[in-house]
Design a protein around this nucleic acid. Structure first.
Lengths: 359, 359
DNA sequence: TTCATAAATGTTAGCGCTATCATATTTTCC
DNA sequence: GGAAAATATGATAGCGCTAACATTTATGAA
């Protein structure tokens, strides 16, 4: 049964009107939509006062504000941010580019990022780069034509042309999910090298001596893998079984990745998966083969997705705070937009290995 | 090791230049960025010709086009779509509103939707309504101020104020994920009532006589639940064990939902979960209790996520084509924008019960 | 060659808003 | 009460682009 809501008032508490338009249309080119001028006429003030009422309400006398709000309600006026943005050079748009929107870890970050920005009147224009520098470049180019007031990027590796475009745009840039000694502007993330190394030492300290890795081919996963293998080598383990999988990772790739490892003789060891999705797939593969976890096979994931704590057996994983990355990215961009000095331009949000049943 | 890409050319094959600007800045208000006028001067043509070169290249002589492209490359010109949109009344922006971007089923649909639109030069402005009609209304209002050329909505239930806003905006609207006898404009989806009913008959025909449902409180899941229960009643099963869970669904809620059912004495039956995420959680809970699936407990999900085929045991689920919904929604919007007549304004993409091991 | 037609380019005038500066009105304080 | 300061409002011009119409140039048929 469809719930039909009653006549509503919008967030400003104004009645949603019927689009009354005072006078006749002005010219041949207009759309016939209600404009700020129409509101001004109806309220008996000048257009600029209506503009101020909308953008800086505390600069307008209470009485005037009320008249204007009534006129807005009666006309059903919807501001035109294309015109506003053109005139003010502030689009109130922030671009965000992630490798994949269907991947919930990125989507989650963007969710918090958007939420934080919404309060300040900004909207987020989302783009998907598909883990490719070329696509990222095309996307940034396309997105810059909307004149965003800031831009959120994933990772710290961008083509030279990208960096040039961003520099020329003269807008705040936040790079996320990684840190770099020399960010374009601000970087918020964690060290993938440290994580690879930490996981290696963690497995070693738990007594595992047969160790494998199922890892995606994307840049950041590769950095973790390299540090992981290097650290194990340093600890005396020369051979690490590697099972590479393409992007984007999936449950199936996790199953296949582990199957390959096991079929090549890997046994009685621990496996580091470059995402929780892969780890979950590996878990399923192990179960389908009747392997007992963690006794016959230990698994550690990456990302600590909400479900990691609730799989059976529960999944040991590397946790990092996506909400914090999203929020801090928003705060940093807002600060930069408002011309505030941002003290730290590299924010390491850290990470943590969450030990559960699978390892 | 960071891979630093070499000097690139952008998609139009132009060298990305250094932002050369001919002459001095024009006025006190400009940003100093390269404008179409700068390009025109450098190319020795009028601004409108540059505009045409960008928007209707086949209306411009090949030689002129080349001169202009060179000028664009040398100046590093990035068009301003705020100005272009204002002048032409075409923002080349399509708004999309989904209940949750972190939910991969919606994200996937949007991915295909965006891909289809990108080819025609449109970008997607994504908003998250959080399963609330009020939020949807605020979001639509905010989004309309960007003057999108079309809008993608999830579901067919919208507040009266929403409908009024959309009507006043006079833009194509596509409602998705559901069908309705009276869509605002075009609806692309499937019948949730039919699905609830089909799943009920499916379980009945498989011989299950103890039947439960773990279902979210969102509108569409409720429609499925109602039809599910009604149909079973029609078949002679008066009692269906119901375990409601809040939105958004999660792995943990699936576990908890099943735990509640089992703790209340439900046994030796089949459970319909309103999402695959819930089903996966239920699977974990059953396994943690040592229940054999499907012998002691059968589970059927909804959504047929990519992993459903690969869990252990694999998950029976209701499949529907998210790619088709996304693509057809894009195609319908494009057709409407181009003023083409859209023959069917209600497109039922159907669904299918995919039988696997869990049921 | 000459006129009709098509193709290419240009001129003009906004799109709907806001920055900037100017002016009017109110408040403050001695 | 009156000058100075603060507050509120308005007039003007223009943000960077494109629609609409006008004009010029190329192409072809008679």
């Amino acid at each position: 049964m469809s719930r039909i809501a009653g006549d509503k008032t919008n967030k400003a508490g104004q009645n949603v009107g019927q689009g009354i338009r005072s006078g006749s249309t002005h010219s041949t080119r207009g759309t016939g939509a209600v404009t700020l001028d129409d509101v001004a006429k109806l309220a008996g003030v000048s257009p600029i006062t209506v503009s101020r009422a909308l953008n800086y309400p505390n600069k307008v006398a209470a009485k005037t504000l009320e008249k204007i709000n009534q006129a807005i309600a009666r006309t059903g006026y919807v501001p035109n941010l294309l015109a506003g943005g053109l005139a003010s050079k502030r689009s109130r748009l922030i671009a965000a580019i992630v490798p994949s929107i269907a991947n919930s870890v990125y989507a989650e970050t963007i969710k918090y990022f958007s939420e934080e920005l919404r309060g300040s009147g900004y909207q987020v224009l989302l783009g998907e780069s598909g883990f490719s520098e070329e696509q990222e470049e095309a996307l940034i180019s396309a997105v810059l034509s909307r004149r965003p007031d800031g831009i959120f990027l994933t990772g710290v590796n961008h083509s030279i042309a990208c960096r040039r475009l961003l520099l020329a745009a003269k807008i705040p840039v936040v790079e996320t999910w990684d840190i770099s000694p020399s960010p374009l502007d601000v970087a918020i993330g964690f060290s993938h090298e440290q994580i690879g190394s930490s996981v290696a030492r963690f497995l070693w300290s738990k007594g595992y001596r047969r160790i494998g890795i199922i890892s995606a081919t994307d840049h950041r996963a590769q950095v973790r893998q390299r540090a992981f293998i290097e650290t194990l080598r340093g600890l005396g383990l020369s051979e690490v079984a590697v099972s590479p999988v393409p992007m984007p990772t999936s449950f199936k790739l996790g199953r296949d990745g582990l199957a390959r490892l096991l079929d090549n003789g890997f046994a009685q060891g621990a496996v580091f998966c470059s995402s929780d999705t892969l780890a979950q797939g590996a878990l399923a593969e192990a179960q389908s083969r009747g392997l007992s976890i963690p006794d016959q096979l230990a698994i550690i994931g990456f990302g600590d997705q909400p479900y990691a704590a609730h799989t059976f057996p529960s999944l040991t994983s590397v946790h990092f705070d996506r909400a914090t990355i999203g929020r801090k990215a928003a705060i940093a961009i807002l600060a930069r937009i408002n011309g505030e000095h941002v003290a730290e331009n590299v924010i390491d949000v850290g990470y943590e290995i969450i030990e559960r049943q699978s390892c």
